[in-house]
């Protein structure tokens, strides 16, 4: 039996070609996987913790402030009943809501979503309420946990 007539599975050249192709694929995968992982954003979040709100001690009853807590926009409001903190990010498409003191509602300037004082949806396209965050007053200083 000549070399050309030998079954392909036992062909030495074919076997070597298969080995080289497999090694090339493994090498390519080994290069691609770290590359894809490299593109995944490096986490900067970490566990929730109390973060002091700058200027929080100056908030008077009825006043509010929009602040960034660990990169997240948060509305902190001081009511006669105490402090409240809600995510300022509209659950529709991510614009920042504003507190309308006259109507006691959160309004989204982008697509007219309206939330009540407890962050519940009143009208508009928002699919979910505004997330509420823990907030506390320690010796006059305001701390929010996101």
């Amino acid at each position: 039996m000549s070399r050309e007539d030998a079954p392909k599975s036992f062909n030495r050249r074919g076997f070597l070609e298969w080995i080289i192709a497999a090694c090339s694929a493994i090498t390519a995968a080994a290069m691609v996987v770290p590359g894809l992982l490299y593109l995944w954003p490096a986490a900067k979040g970490g566990k929730a913790e109390d973060v002091e709100v700058k200027g929080g001690e100056n908030l008077k009853p009825g006043e509010h402030s929009t602040v960034q807590v660990r990169g997240k926009a948060v509305i902190v409001r001081r009511d006669p009943g105490g402090l409240a903190a809600y995510s300022a990010v509209c659950t529709h498409l991510g614009c920042l809501v504003k507190w309308d003191a006259g109507k006691e509602q959160f309004l989204c300037p982008c697509h007219a979503a309206v939330f009540n004082a407890r962050g519940q949806v009143v009208s508009g396209p928002a699919p979910a309420p505004l997330p509420e965050y823990k907030v506390k007053d320690v010796g006059g200083k305001v701390y929010v946990s996101t």
Binding site: K98, P109, C110
Partner: peptide, 23 residues
């Protein structure tokens, strides 16, 4: 300004049909 969304932002003309349809 990451702490202030301007009023009624709109996309460029070529995204307007998708922008409106999404509403």
């Amino acid at each position: 300004n990451p702490l202030l969304t301007p009023e009624h932002i709109k996309p460029e003309w070529y995204f307007l049909p998708s922008y409106q349809l999404l509403k």
